[in-house]
Amino acid sequence: MARYIVKRLLLSIPILFGISLITFAVIHITPGGPTVLQSQMNAKMSPDSIAKLKTLYDLDKPLPVQYMKWLSRLARLDFGESFNDNRPVTEKILERLPATLQLNLLSLLLLFLIAVPLGVYSAAKQNSVFDRLFTSITFIGFSVPSFWLALLLMLFFGVWLQWLPISGMASVNSASMPPVLQVYDRIQHLILPLFVSIFGSIAGLSRYMRSGMLEVIRQDYIRTARAKGLPEREVLLNHALRNALLPVITIIGLSIPGLISGGFIFETIFAWPGMGRLAYESAMSFDYPVIMGVVIAGALLTLLGNLFADIAYAFADPRIRY
């Protein structure tokens, strides 16, 4: 097992390398650039000072040289400095990481806690009214775009009903609140972003769980469990669920990149101070070092998530040994 983990970690180095190369190429191919943006804002800017800016950012050098420079700094775990405020990229990311992790880990947890029982119940009551209703709702959940749902919920709960805040992680005056109210304030700010981030995934995962259960229920060993005299509840929750959960582990591992990239959109909509919004902001202002940093950090989280899922799979399924 230890050998397998080391192997996987070593394998992720070339993957990260490839990701960085492609990202680097794509952001430099994109029309526009940091100097273009600054000179457009300021009509008085002379061609001379633009050239100076380019030298300052190393943008006058050929792309391969720029990439090698970036890579050599990365080898020393240095992501460079932001073009915008000259602060180290690492610092900017670490400052945003907790917000993203908080949202994503809570999303995953809630997703699992809601989708799995929904799917199991729906499978146990196959073709019941609940099952049919559930099937229609999941199709809606699957098809609704999350940014549209986010705006609609903000309008409804934030503007019309004024029940929930529509942006940020906490109220402006939260520092002056007593601790209990601070927590309450934070939870209130979490509700809409969390709901939007998992709504579509709940539909997908519970649907998957349902078909997984239906598949497992037909297996011979379920008949054996019934023939032993196990009550149906135990047959479903013990013998069937353990087996039906195996593929779900993989699905959750695969959904980590989706959660992180989905964050680009709804972190921006909800002004959530996480990595997704940082990526969006830096992309809009052609802040190359920050874009690269965020992409690498996101890729790293994804690779680690997948590795974690594979390890969990080996623990859950005795037939799999690495």
């Binding site: 011979d220 060993y221 054996t224 037939r319």
Partner: peptide, 12 residues
Amino acid sequence: FQEPFTALNPVF
């Protein structure tokens, strides 16, 4: 049952 290969639960 007929199939001892599939009649036992693989994860227990």
